[in-house]
């Protein structure tokens, strides 16, 4: 495949969280390129682009914030699952919500894991365990 190199796509509008997610990916020990998109439209464009251009990058793992400008995380999730090239990517949703209903909603819409953003640094680093768990083994 032209875009053979696997990578992680981070969909997150808050730079403070982007920084923390970068640190957790680093802490996970997985060394692949990281693409960052900052809103919902940018995210869906990213998948559309991958579908129309085989040389465009296609993520192995998506770390997706749920409250995003322009498009809600659920819509992005649905869009991703319809993309013929990117539909197989693992998805970890990160959100501030502790409500069980929000967790159910994202799992029902095709997310693989749900991570509630904590307010302590060490707790945030636990996201690294999920990244290791869901990053596709074969492409490692």
């Amino acid at each position: 495949m032209a875009a053979g190199k696997s990578h992680i796509l981070v969909v997150e509008d808050n730079p403070a969280d982007v920084f923390l997610i970068r640190e957790t990916i680093e802490a996970s020990g997985i060394k692949v390129p990281i693409h960052i998109v900052k809103d919902g439209e940018e995210a869906t464009r990213f998948f559309d682009n991958a579908d129309s251009d085989d040389s465009a990058p296609c993520p192995s793992l998506v770390i997706l914030d749920i409250n995003l400008p322009k498009k809600h995380g659920i819509q992005i999730l649905q869009h991703l699952r319809r993309s013929h090239r990117c539909r197989g990517a693992s998805v970890i949703v990160v959100s501030t919500s502790t409500a069980a209903k929000d967790r159910e909603d994202v799992i029902l819409n095709g997310a693989d894991a749900y991570f509630c953003k904590p307010s302590k640094y060490d707790d945030f680093l636990k996201l690294a365990d999920l990244i290791r768990e869901w990053f596709p083994k074969t492409t490692k």
């Binding site: 808050n14 969280d17 409250n67 904590p118 640094y121 945030f124």
Partner: peptide, 17 residues
Amino acid sequence: LQEPLRGLKIYSELLAR
């Protein structure tokens, strides 16, 4: 309010660490 507060907490922690 929880959202910005979380950033405030975690970064003041990182600053201290």
